[in-house]
Structures are given as structure tokens and as C-alpha cells.
């Protein structure tokens, strides 16, 4: 039925405070979500004062500094530190983005860092994305063609056909968009979410793919596709500047086109 309150074990408490070292001049406070499955305690927000003169410019630099020099128990995912792997996706100052692409100085006051919203938490800032990955797998994100490829090379595309994939192949599957979507929070078990629908449209729009109709068939569903309410959080939050809402709109247009 309708849920109006957080479950009791999701209420976030106040955590520890780690003051800046003496003599630090440019100090910012990072309030970071902490939760571990090892005890039965509720999550807390730990506060870390960080000397910005000692670290690089991005939020990820601050997180690495905290883990290396202040509190080694802090857990988060990161890899490429240049916005191409999607590992460090998290909610920074209320917005889902990549910690490695978010400049600390673009924000005012204390900086709140939470895991991606409304996903199960593995530990601290690491959310469990297994469900979203499985949804991606479920739309068959690979080329499906029955015609054999030319014996002497790859399947060819015109420049115009290839251009239709721009704005979609760049998606790095960080799931900032999917976890920012209220429709996904409400119906994430049935709604595919913007990242997966963008991937689905990437294959629908691919001139080399021959299963467009099957793809549209499998998306024709009150929830899988149509739980999108055009809220547009996905497009607003995408750290790569992509437009999942537009891709979803195009899928709906194609569904209408083949019906009327």
C-alpha cells in the first residue's frame, strides 16, 4: 500500500566528527553517509573536515584523501577518475553525479554525500546495482541481425545512420539517471528506468539491427516503458550531458507510429 514514512532501520542518525588538522586554511566539511552490514545499527552521517589546499579539485580527491589519511574504513567505488568508468556515481549535494567530475568549489557550505538513492546499500557509498544491470541485460543490448554480415568486412552504415547513435553510445551506465527517477523509486521492479531505456533506444535506432519490432514489442508495457512520467530528472542529472528523456520520448513515438 502507500508508504509515507521511511522504514525504521533507514532513519539516518548523526555520526562521528573528524576535525581538520591544526593550521589548515581552506577547510570544507564533508558529511558522508555511513552504513555497514556488519552490525545492526542504523546509518549515520559522519562529518569530515578537509583541508582543500592539500588535495585536488574534485569531490573524488576529497574522498580519496579521507580514506587515505583520515578514516580508512570509508567505502566507495572509484576507478578511472576521469568520468568514463561510472564507478564513483553518488549523490553529492542532492544531485546524482560522478565524484570525479564534480568540482568541490562548485558547491557552497557543507557538502553532503550519499549513495545513489533508493538502491540497496552494500556498504557506505556503495549501492547495489544488480537489479539495474539485469534490466540492461533483459533488453538484449547487442546487435540482432538475421542477414549475414558481408564476408569481407563489418556491417556498414551511412554517415547519417551512424549519426543517429550520437548522444546514446556515450552512456557509461553509471545509473545516475535511473536512481534519480521518482518513477524508478516507486516501480523499479517493473519500470526499466532511463539508463536502460536509453540503451534500448540505442539498439532500436541502430540501422544495422533487424529486430526493431521485437524490441518495441518487449517494451510495450504499462510499466517497463510507460511508467516514465516525463519528470526529466534523468536529463537534468546526467553527468555526461546526455538526454535519456528524449530517447524515451522517441520510443513512445515509434510505439504510436506503428499503432496508428
Amino acid at each position: 500500500m502507500v508508504e509515507l514514512r521511511l522504514p525504521r532501520n533507514s532513519t539516518v542518525g548523526k555520526g562521528q566528527f573528524f576535525p581538520a588538522p591544526a593550521g589548515a586554511k581552506t577547510v570544507r566539511t564533508f558529511k558522508i553517509y555511513r552504513w555497514t552490514p556488519d552490525d545492526d545499527k542504523n546509518p549515520v552521517m559522519d562529518a569530515y573536515e578537509v583541508d582543500l589546499d592539500a588535495i585536488g579539485p574534485m569531490v573524488l580527491d576529497a574522498l580519496i584523501h579521507i580514506k587515505n589519511d583520515i578514516d580508512p574504513t570509508l567505502t566507495f567505488r572509484r576507478s578511472c577518475r576521469e568520468g568514463i568508468c561510472g564507478s564513483c556515481a553518488m549523490n553529492i549535494d542532492g544531485e546524482n553525479t560522478l565524484a570525479c567530475l564534480k568540482p568541490i568549489k562548485s558547491m557552497e557550505g557543507d557538502i553532503m554525500i550519499n549513495p545513489l538513492p533508493h538502491m540497496p546499500i552494500v556498504k557506505d557509498l556503495v549501492s547495489n546495482l544488480d537489479g539495474a544491470y539485469a534490466q540492461l541485460r533483459a533488453i538484449d543490448p547487442w546487435i540482432q541481425a538475421d542477414s549475414p554480415p558481408p564476408p569481407d568486412g563489418e556491417r556498414r552504415q551511412s554517415i547519417e545512420e551512424r549519426a543517429k547513435l550520437d548522444g546514446m553510445w556515450e552512456c557509461i551506465l553509471c545509473f545516475c539517471c535511473t536512481t534519480s527517477c521518482p518513477s524508478y523509486w516507486w516501480n523499479g521492479d517493473r519500470y526499466l528506468g532511463p539508463a536502460v531505456l536509453l540503451a534500448a533506444y540505442r539498439w532500436i535506432a541502430d540501422s544495422r539491427d533487424e529486430h526493431t519490432g521485437d524490441r518495441l514489442d518487449s517494451l510495450e508495457d504499462t510499466f517497463k516503458l510507460y511508467a516514465c512520467r516525463t519528470i526529466m530528472n534523468c536529463t537534468q542529472t546526467c553527468p555526461k550531458g546526455l538526454n535519456p528523456a528524449k530517447a524515451i520520448g522517441r520510443i513512445k513515438e515509434l510505439q504510436v507510429e506503428r499503432k496508428l
Binding site: 544488480d130 510495450e220 508495457d221 504499462t222 510507460y226
Partner: peptide
């Protein structure tokens, strides 16, 4: 149940476009 099984769920309901229109 596996995540893929859950993601595929009951499959497509083959409706929704009419409602959207």
C-alpha cells in the same frame, strides 16, 4: 530468484500505448 529472472518478470503486457494516446 536470479536478478535477470526478476528483471524479465512476467514479460511485456503488450499494452500501454493505447493508454498513453
Amino acid at each position: 530468484r536470479s536478478q535477470l529472472g526478476r528483471a524479465r518478470g512476467l514479460g511485456s503486457g503488450h499494452s500501454g500505448t493505447g493508454h498513453w494516446i
